[in-house]
């Protein structure tokens, strides 16, 4: 099927995410306005106006009532999804790199960059407590150490936090005793750009600058699978219905201007989850892909690129017919 191309952003896309039902698609970009779209036809439902800098991350809670965004303007904002109104504006010391709703939808976990004298931090707050929404109180707040987190997830039962770092490290933190790291693994050699869960949240896939994506067990952080490419991987997602993963990436954005699209390898690449073998590529973007996400029904996926476009790709029948022999 022809892709639906969403022309809503003026700058590179930084993050796209579906809500739990999959009817809505959220997109954040380096322009200051996150968008929300109907995923079925690409019609824009609305925007979240207020930020004054690039948006690095966006997330929606499970019952699709609230949206949280964080960006380079040193602020984290909570929005009412139905009205698009700002509920809270938490001012931070430095840019907000990642934001994530917890499984319960009550807690929000965000991380900040280190800027000058402010160290990079991991902060968790409760959206139901008024004092937390002013930024003056938290559930937990602690420094990340020398290596800033660049990707983040909630751990099992909202009791732990998992962060991927700029040096390729993955750290698991206990939310109740945040100063003791539960686990640290160093399977990646370079920055981790993205981490996404599979459908039952037992595994997650990482995307790294070291040209690989890797599959980890969410509890033990045991390395399960490796997907190799020749270019930095910016984002990776696991299909909810089939044993497939999709990887998006390409040549680094800063080098793109010196190279042709052919060299950049800006295709979305499909690998078999278990066999680690690549079986398909989808062309389209003319810059690196910064974020990919599977629709929760597994029948389509979306990609957001450095070219400022979001492309919703619905799978054709051959996709379902294709099977690996084993």
């Amino acid at each position: 099927m022809r892709p639906i191309v969403l022309h809503g952003h003026e700058r590179p896309i930084t993050k796209i995410r579906y809500n739990k039902d999959g009817d809505l698609l959220f997109s954040a970009s380096k322009d200051n306005i996150p968008n929300v779209w109907y995923s079925i036809n690409g019609e824009r439902l609305g925007t979240f106006d207020g930020h004054s800098g690039a948006i690095w991350s966006i997330d929606c809670n499970w019952d699709s009532t609230k949206v949280v965004t964080g960006g380079a303007d040193n602020s984290l904002r909570l929005w009412d999804l139905q009205t698009g109104k700002e509920i809270a504006n938490i001012v931070t010391n430095s840019p907000v790199r990642t934001v994530t709703f917890s499984y319960s939808g009550k807690l929000v976990f965000y991380t900040t960059d280190s800027v000058m004298k402010f160290p990079s931090e991991l902060i968790v707050f409760d959206t139901t407590i008024g004092e937390h929404l002013t930024g003056n109180d938290h559930v937990a707040r602690f420094p990340s150490g020398a290596q800033k987190p660049t990707a983040a997830l909630w751990g099992e039962l909202d009791r732990s936090l998992i962060t991927g770092h700029v040096n390729g490290q993955i750290t698991k933190w206990d939310l109740r005793k945040p100063h003791d790291k539960l686990n640290v693994v160093e399977e990646h050699k370079k920055q981790i750009n993205d981490m996404q869960y599979n459908v039952d949240q037992t595994m997650f896939i990482t995307a790294s600058m070291d040209n690989t994506a890797k599959l980890f067990d969410a509890n033990s952080l045991e390395l399960l699978k490796v997907y190799k490419t020749e270019r930095p991987v910016n984002s990776a997602a696991i299909s909810p219905i089939r044993d497939h993963v999709v990887l998006g990436g390409g040549q680094e954005a800063m080098q793109v201007t010196t190279t042709s699209a052919r060299e950049g390898k800006f295709e979305a690449r499909f690998f078999h989850l278990v066999f680690e073998e690549e079986f398909a590529r989808v062309k389209g973007h003319f810059g690196p892909i910064n974020s990919v996400a599977f629709h929760p029904d597994g029948k389509s996926y979306s990609s957001g690129g450095e070219d400022g476009l979001v492309r919703i790709q619905t799978f054709d029948p051959p996709y379902y017919e294709f099977k690996f022999e084993y």
């Binding site: 037992t202 067990d217 399960l224 989850l273 278990v274 066999f275 690996f324 022999e325 084993y326």
Partner: peptide, 12 residues
């Protein structure tokens, strides 16, 4: 592949 698949299924 069969071996990998079995291992993965067991794990899962």
């Amino acid at each position: 592949r069969k071996r990998m698949m079995n291992e993965f299924r067991n794990y899962h």
